Amino acid sequence: MENPAQRIERIKSEMGDRLSILGHHYQTDDVIHFTDIQGDSLELARKITNLDAEHIVFCGVFFMAESAAILCRDDQKIHIPDVTASCPMADMAEAGRVRKTLEILQKDGRKIVPLTYVNSSAAVKAVVGEYDGSVCTSANARTMLDWALNQGDAVLFLPDMHLGCNTANLLGIPEDKRLVLPKDVIDGDPALHVDPAAADDKRLILWPGYCPIHEEFTLDSTRAIRETEPEAKIVVHPECSPSVVEASDGNGSTTFLIKYAEEADDGTTIYIGTEENLVNRLAARYEGRKVIRPLLSSQCEDMGKITVEKLADTLENLNYSNPVTVSNAIREPARRALERMLAVCS
């Protein structure tokens, strides 16, 4: 009887170019081993439209598969090995509450342009598309926020307040021109918690969401390293809090972190503040040349739901299982939002 790895290899061989397996950097090594393309959200989004494969299997969390389903051609099918692999940050912004918040903020006639981090549902991307907004990733947040600021009177950035604040710092947006919405908007009625008068003179309005993984990194994490290993470098993902980003030697997307590790001099010790699967992969890649360690042990449980066993089962049932789909009512405006990003960043 074949084991899961053998099943995957056999099916990949049988299907050839009809199949493409995509994997986010936060996947475990045993899953990444079977992927044809690896990358961060922007890299993978850019690949979709140019793939010839009939079946695209996305090893990541559900919003990524949804984004693929929005961008793919009609003759392509998108699959994910576990549909319950969600994103807690994405779940902090519900489409109905986002729409109501935009309605409230625009009652005074100001044009509020929504910009959503790619870590959001297709329904949220659709709302953003309807309001002439766009999408960003951690790799292009600065470019896209600068674009959005030039499209209207203010920007509603969602769902990650940390990425929004860190990007605002890069663009020099003063703190007195920013407003973080009350956390009650995540679960409550925006009509009870959003005060349009408080946003009257603001250029950037921030949804109060965050990534629970990157929220775990604190100043204590960096201070301990500075005291015991002053020569070590610390680089972090911009989903970390602004205080942690400010205390680091650099910050950026997963692609940035990978490149930083690659370009560091031999003998360098680097602490990386992001999901641990990527950090451990880099540590193994440069073992004996550089010391790479996690700033703190932190793994995404939802990313971990994608396993070799589930991938093998998915591949064996490609022709029988229900692919990830997005209704046309959501797909079209969401696609506009995503395509605006791809056009600006082309």
Rank of each mutant, 00 (worst) to 15 (best):
A68Y: 04
A154K: 04
Q299D: 05
E130D: 14
G188A: 06
R340W: 07
S297D: 14
T314L: 08
F256K: 04
I11L: 15
P190V: 05
C87Y: 05
F62Q: 12
D153Q: 11
T222E: 06
P174E: 10
T28L: 06
S121R: 09
K259D: 15
V235Q: 05
R97N: 13
E103S: 00
D91I: 03
D249L: 07
A126S: 14
M144D: 07
G39R: 12
A232T: 07
A264H: 01
P159A: 02
R336I: 10
G250A: 10
A312S: 09
M64V: 08
N169Y: 07
V155P: 04
D195P: 09
N119V: 10
E54S: 12
N251C: 14
S41C: 02
A69G: 00
W147C: 05
F58T: 02
S241N: 08
E215H: 12
T35I: 04
A68H: 03
A312P: 02
I258M: 12
L206Y: 12
F34D: 03
L71G: 01
D195R: 09
G267Y: 10
I32K: 13
N119K: 08
V244T: 03
S321D: 14
N166V: 05
C59H: 01
L149M: 13
K125S: 09
T137W: 03
T49D: 09
L156M: 06
G267R: 08
N328F: 08
A154M: 05
T116W: 08
D195T: 08
S321G: 06
I225N: 06
R99L: 07
N277P: 00
D82F: 09
R223A: 14
D17L: 04
F34C: 05
A139D: 01
R203C: 05
V308A: 06
A261Q: 03
V326Q: 07
G152R: 12
T228Y: 01
G60K: 13
D52K: 14
A139C: 01
G23M: 04
E43D: 06
L115D: 09
L295N: 11
A139K: 10
V83D: 11
V180I: 15
I272Q: 03
D160G: 05
G172R: 07
R281G: 04
E215I: 00
E339C: 09
L19C: 11
E239C: 10
L311W: 12
C72G: 05
G129S: 11
I56K: 07
A45H: 00
G39Y: 08
D249W: 11
D29L: 10
R289A: 09
A329M: 13
R97W: 03
I80P: 01
T35P: 11
C211Q: 08
S346M: 11
D153S: 07
L149R: 12
L181C: 08
L296Q: 14
L192H: 14
V236W: 03
T314H: 11
A343M: 04
L204V: 00
N319S: 15
L282P: 00
D74P: 04
G252I: 06
D176P: 02
K12E: 06
R7T: 12
S138C: 00
A5D: 11
E231P: 00
L315C: 07
D187E: 15
D201P: 00
W207E: 04
I78L: 11
V344K: 14
P230G: 07
D176Q: 13
P190R: 08
E215P: 00
P114T: 05
V128Y: 00
